[in-house]
Design a protein around this nucleic acid. Structure first.
Lengths: 356, 356
DNA sequence: GTCCATTGATTAAACGTTTCATCAAGCAAC
DNA sequence: GTTGCTTGATGAAACGTTTAATCAATGGAC
């Protein structure tokens, strides 16, 4: 047990003033003479006083604490995807700049979210929530200031930070088309309505359409956006007649795919061009370095905090939804398709075996 | 602004009892009849009452909030290493099981750690602190229950969770020796006294010594444990006459090394065997799949919370320092060295160029 | 029928702040 | 010399709990 807490009373006594005055010095409120300020400051220093947030919370219902809600953290899902880590890193950085602290909570379907009220949370950053989820409804209803990252929500009263996913989907696909590919598979996470994967999917379709390439539903291969998912997709992708390129809506899936292909003795980009989405720190170190649609994940996190802070201050920010720009990073996992190369690949001929 | 808070008073009034009774029902304290319990419970339900943590904190100085302090989060350091993400994931999981919430804080050298007192934190989990750091001193001095992850601290009063790093270092090196390698470089993070890299380094030396191989300081190459660090180490490692294997004290560095080697047209394990440490989710998907010393990172996080909880409960746990077991996972990045193959590699002859 | 222990409930203080209403003193204006 | 304004400071209530002290009622034991 540490020694009993130094309170505002101790400071007041030591400085020979009332607690109200100390409080005023602390917060820069009210009128207090320069002399008194000095005396009080000294007393604070000497006693090593620091105010109790708990007491403050109780009084003015501001906690300077926000929660970051990450999907399925405890299911191990996240542990696989550094994307979230980067995002949370950006949020932490932003929070630090705004003198906020963050509480990290794994979203749980059974979660009551009661902690939001109980802990007097000032705001919420929710990552990857799905439209219509009950928890989400409740949050919006409570009116707790919140910012949603990576969900396209219809409600115009809800603040959202996203990457320009549709454009990213378009750019990635267009890049492959420009390289001469026409048989382009899409490796995507589950296409939930209003999710990021749907937006990227739509960009993929737009690029195809613009190039006069028909869209074939079987060519959109859905797998969880994890290494495992990417690796598991290999047979489904190789089964597509004539496939010469794959656009993956996440880098982890793309890297799982890379791994699965190499295990079968296939070489990227010789046998298949592969592009991803996210530009994770790993991606440029992949073998081969991964062509990808880059988004500034850290910025995304920082912007989320900025928007939330504006919301909490009741300053009407200039937008409800902000799209972080994306950019294509062409590296070595995609290649130009020579004239006449567009022929179907025979999956049987390919199987040379790996040393897995 | 949400509507005014439902307080314990409202419940008391609605149930026709005193607030003390409601409080007793809430906490299962005191004596209260079954009938009353039922009535109060109903009132709580109806009013959707949930108690204010802030008020509770103020009263009994327990917040059920712990802080997780991660090194240099905001410097971008962490964003690179999924290790921390996994660890935090494990901690979140543990915290959830113990009904604790976690506050994520990036360690900053200028950080005053005043938030620990201000927010009435129940405990601290500190990741990768260095012996003698001022902040650390203060924390220990305050007597706030804390658990240190991944630092070997001399102070016997301090609770520590670590992997069996020395053994891991030994196992990884031994594995290479068993494969016939004798010229084994060490790629390591900065060897700070009492840090994990030092422990792994010591294991490396023990294995060498046991095999009668002399230790040459130049063969311990220090680089930051990041992809960049690993990639940057390539020239230094290739400069070592006769090197046939590298043991890296972290998987990210190993993977950066893999990448740097492939960029130079060198093949693993043909030209060089590479082993890592951590068994990150990526590692088995690397090209080639990475041989590594596996530690159960999630378990590490969960154990940290368990130990902290015991500490907070003043239950004396059976140990001050717990070592999580490690295990060698042999995969395809290391190979058997044929008889007579131990000859020096000529770095000039190697340079075949990559397609970077 | 008095005394005591037990059960079930209440009253009120305390936790450490912020803030509103009040107040004393000083001073300028009339 | 009353009035009124400004400056600097204070007293006390309030925030929503927990808990120690107290109390009323009940029912045995003697």
């Amino acid at each position: 047990m540490s020694v009993t807490r130094v309170t505002i009373k101790d400071v007041a006594r030591s400085a020979g003033v009332s607690i109200a005055t100390v409080s005023n010095v602390l917060n820069g409120t009210g009128r207090v003479s320069a002399d008194t300020v000095r005396t009080v400051r000294r007393a604070i220093q000497e006693l090593k006083y620091s105010p109790s947030q708990a007491a403050r919370n109780l009084k003015d219902k501001k906690s300077r604490l926000i929660a970051v809600i990450v999907p399925l953290l405890h299911k191990g899902f996240l542990h696989d995807n550094p994307f979230y880590w980067q995002l949370v890193g950006g949020i932490e950085e932003g929070a630090r700049a705004h003198r906020l602290h963050i509480m990290l909570v794994g979203a749980d379907s059974e979660e009551s979210y009661s902690f939001v009220k109980e802990r007097h949370l000032d705001g919420l950053i929710v990552i990857g929530a799905f439209e219509g989820s009950e928890a989400l409804e409740r949050i919006v209803q409570w009116g707790v200031p919140s910012v949603f990252v990576d969900s396209y929500l219809a409600d115009p009263n809800v603040y959202q930070i996203l990457s320009d996913d549709e454009k990213g989907g378009y750019l990635g696909t267009k890049h492959l088309i420009d390289l001469g590919h026409r048989n382009i598979a899409l490796l995507t996470g589950e296409i939930e309505p209003n999710g990021v994967h749907e937006a990227r999917f739509l960009g993929y379709r737009r690029a195809l359409k613009e190039a006069g390439i028909g869209y074939r539903p079987a060519w959109a291969v859905e797998e969880p956006p994890t290494m495992e998912g990417g690796a598991r997709s290999v047979p489904r992708i190789l089964a597509l007649q004539g496939v010469s390129a794959v656009f993956a809506t996440s880098d982890v899936a793309a890297m799982g795919l890379l791994s699965g292909l190499s295990e079968r003795g296939l070489s990227v980009p010789r046998d298949l061009s592969v592009a991803g989405f996210d530009d994770l720190p790993y991606s440029r170190f992949a073998t081969p370095p991964l062509t990808t649609v880059a988004q500034d994940i850290g910025l995304k996190g920082r912007e989320a905090v900025r928007l939330l802070q504006a919301h909490m201050d009741n300053k009407e920010p200039p937008y409800r939804r902000k799209l972080i720009p994306v950019e294509l990073k062409a590296r070595q996992s995609t290649r130009f398709l020579e004239e006449g190369e567009g022929e179907p690949v025979d999956a049987n001929e390919i199987r040379k075996g790996g040393d897995g």
